[in-house]
Design a protein around this nucleic acid. Structure first.
Lengths: 200, 200
DNA sequence: CATTCAGCGTGACAATTGTCATGCGCCAAT
DNA sequence: ATTGGCGCATGACAATTGTCACGCTGAATG
């Protein structure tokens, strides 16, 4: 019997796959969490064999959860289940030692099977992603990432300077660096590229 | 027996709620589609009592599907099931005469119930949205919408001018209009506001 | 049928954004 | 102990973006 904890912020999906997995007789869903912090609490309480988690959740993300598990409970396997085929996410997940990385458009029938394979020690990666895993490495520095994130929200250079305690010119410089590194033509394009790679 | 057709591009969710609904003995899932066009074909074929559809799908969106159903098969009820609490989406859905508008973070248990109520003729709206339905109406003109969409992809004014066969100054003007109407400070903020309202 | 008004289109000018050269400190490799 | 590279920080200058005043059209209103 594989004891599973689910973390997924979309309630409908949380409930639906919960029921789906509960129908399998070798799987037992011991807990359901709607965000990373709740997941962590339930993990301490139930000590499941495996955590199946979304990435983008309020509070602690699935990647942070995976990294925390690798440190604190390395015996608990992790399967990431996400909408986003972002290379940077996969890379980070693999670096956290996850056993699986599946996309939410996997057919439902395959999920239980993937979980079993992961539990047996196999590493289960969505085939669309297996290739792209090791292409580009994040070239951004912390400062560049900061300004890019803010730029994506439509914040002006002047305002960024104020928030980060930098001269406006400095902010412009980081943005320009980022735009250059990402081969973009402006901040918006740069932001989209970085986001799609999972670098923000 | 309520005969249902599901349209949802996230396969996992499509399969999971399909199974979930099939467990109810007064509900029958007669077809599953992964995009709007497939949904339309299956509707012609099966003539379900109700269509449960996502909004953002490749090809024909759920809103377009709802509008088409209102014209071609007004007897078929529509329930929209989406991630996005965007007022503009709800408004448009209601104008297409849908019977329900639910968010994907509804607990799974409530879904079947909402479907039954919708089938009985009730109009089921996610409570978070019931209020916001009739606040702001889309103030954008077609041109403004066009340039805003392109701006959101990081396209420069010059390039937009080329694509739309307009002088660069004209493009700048539409953007400026849009920024003004939306009370934004720049194109990015304007784009985000419009998108969050469901106006793009 | 005159008038008003909204949408489309434009260019001049102002403000913001992007690029580049430069300097500083730190650390790792010679 | 140097040297070279990288990240951080800045300002001058160039390019792009944002604002405004304006003209044109057609549809709606009186």
């Amino acid at each position: 019997m594989i004891r599973i904890l689910l973390a997924e912020d979309q309630n409908l999906l949380l409930g639906a796959i919960g029921q789906l997995l509960a129908l399998e007789d070798d799987l037992d869903v011991v807990g359901r969490a709607a965000d990373g912090d709740e997941a962590r609490a339930l993990i301490e309480q139930h000590r499941p064999d495996m955590v199946v988690s979304d990435i983008e959740m309020p509070g602690m993300t699935g990647l942070e959860l995976a990294e925390w598990l690798a440190r604190e409970h390395p015996e608990i396997r992790v399967v990431i289940l996400t909408t986003f085929a972002r290379p940077g996410y996969l890379r980070r997940a693999l670096e956290a030692g996850v056993s699986g990385y599946l996309l939410k458009d996997t057919p439902a029938e395959k999920l239980a099977d993937a979980i079993r394979r992961a539990q047996r020690g196999e590493r289960v990666i969505a085939p669309e992603l297996a290739l792209t895993a090791f292409d580009a490495k994040d070239p951004l520095t912390m400062r560049e990432r900061q300004v890019l994130r803010l730029a994506g929200e439509g914040i002006s250079n002047a305002e960024m300077g104020r928030r980060l305690h930098l001269a406006e010119g400095t902010v412009r410089n980081y943005l320009s660096e980022a735009i250059g590194k990402l081969n973009a033509d402006n901040r918006i394009e740069a932001w989209r590229i970085a986001r799609d790679q999972g670098w923000l």
